[in-house]
Design a protein around this nucleic acid. Structure first.
Lengths: 244, 244
DNA sequence: ACAAAAGTGTTAGGATTACACCCATGT
DNA sequence: ACATGGGTGTAATCCTAACACTTTTGT
């Protein structure tokens, strides 16, 4: 990334985006029984940063959040929910300090936080030419983050935990077909505690949002677990007001 | 409000405030066993509007919400919580359409929603020279509102209901001293349903946040009810992460 | 054979709900 | 006296947690 690159980007952003507002997403994925977050690393910067972007002049904020995530991950079937706004003074100070004052990135930003749940197996992180890398990192422990991004992740996680305890979850976080032990592992990863298998089984059955498929997951050791998918209609109904 | 007035205000706002961002507050008050919202009416406009304002360049968003509310109501001991962001396109279109395009108010705004709980007996609504009147209106039914302000109120109320069901409430909404039937009336007004008196009594005692005073509320018919105040420390602890 | 998966039974505890009773007390 | 407020008792219900037992089934 050259000095000129960033100045070009700045000019384009002033042209098309709404100033002072940014959108940052905490994107949760789930793989190998572990809860992960999608993080970026800016070139020449040692700390991690949340994937984010700006609101275009002709765009609603939910749409912007979706677009940004799509650009970054290729995922378009996304559960996205707003969970907070972060607008303290000086939250973005210090970065770009060597650049001219009219640089887009040097503005004061109020950032709108979304958390997203995606099927990690379907997502290919896409770095752009400002970012060194774009990676799934485990949620525990949270790596060193830029600015207030660690606080943002924590708030996102606590919001997610609240949702999970009285709404179903899993759609968009799991592949189309999944097993009950996998779903339980997801709950355990989010809540950070072991759950009782029998009780979990009954809880899911009571939700009445699962459809058992005719196949099993072959190839593992021991007994092949049954595969399920979500009943979209019932799932949506159970979700109530939340987006998805 | 003359044409010149609004142009002057516009110039001053461009100078001191961050563009495109507004803050709207849904201010709940409680009086005569009824839940009310503080609403404004703009001159020459027939629908009601939420009290709101703009974020100054040197100000955090929570601070701005507090300042705006203080300017409008004189209240400074306020329970304030963020509950959402409203950033659809065209949400503020149509107003000020006869004014020049560089008018502050004609921008596209993303509004940050706060809900507030105040002691209505301590608040004197303060209209400014843009507003005809500033009044407490009952929450049911919500009067005709400008733009998406009805949606904002509904979201605020549902957030408040969620909070009330697992956090204590009442401080900032009731006078310093209050009776249990008054507190119960507040809960009933927010939740929109009658509660059982005996169970409510025990629930409050279990919270362990009330201090019984030595006086009673005199002057009513029949038996004088006991007066209570909140135990600030225990109340704060029970609130957990919420502001107040 | 083994270990995981599936399905079910049971029990204890906690919280909530609904009623009901008794006493106290201003007007 | 009377209607409200204060305080308590209790039974029914629901949900959750904890544990245990059985059966099924790929490797």
């Amino acid at each position: 990334m050259t000095n000129q690159d960033i100045k070009d980007a700045s000019a384009e952003l002033w042209q098309n985006s709404i100033p002072h507002i940014s959108i940052d997403s905490v994107v949760f994925g789930f793989l190998n029984n572990q809860l992960n977050v999608l993080l970026l690393k800016i070139k020449e910067e040692e700390n991690w940063i949340l994937p984010g972007g700006y609101l275009q002049k002709n765009e609603g904020i939910d749409d912007a959040a979706k677009r940004i995530l799509y650009e970054r991950s290729g995922a378009d079937k996304i559960f996205l929910n707003h969970f907070g706004v972060f607008g303290d003074l000086n939250r973005s100070e210090g970065y770009f300090k060597d650049y001219p004052d009219d640089l887009w990135h040097k503005q004061r930003f109020i950032t709108i936080g979304y958390y997203a749940l995606v099927d990690q197996t379907q997502v290919n992180p896409i770095p752009d030419h400002f970012t060194d890398c774009c990676e799934w990192k485990p949620v525990h422990p949270i790596p060193n983050m830029v600015m207030d991004h660690e606080i943002i992740i924590k708030k996102a996680l606590s919001t997610l935990r609240e949702h999970i305890s009285h709404k179903p979850i899993g759609y968009n976080l799991l592949p189309e077909a999944f097993t009950l032990p996998e779903l339980q592992g997801l709950y355990e990863a989010i809540l950070g505690e072991k759950l009782n298998r029998g009780n979990f089984y009954r809880k899911m059955m009571r939700y009445d949002i699962l459809i058992k498929l005719d196949e099993q997951r072959r190839g593992g050791a021991y007994k092949a677990p049954d595969l399920y998918k979500f009943d979209e209609d019932k799932y949506k109904k159970a979700l109530g007001g939340l987006n998805w």
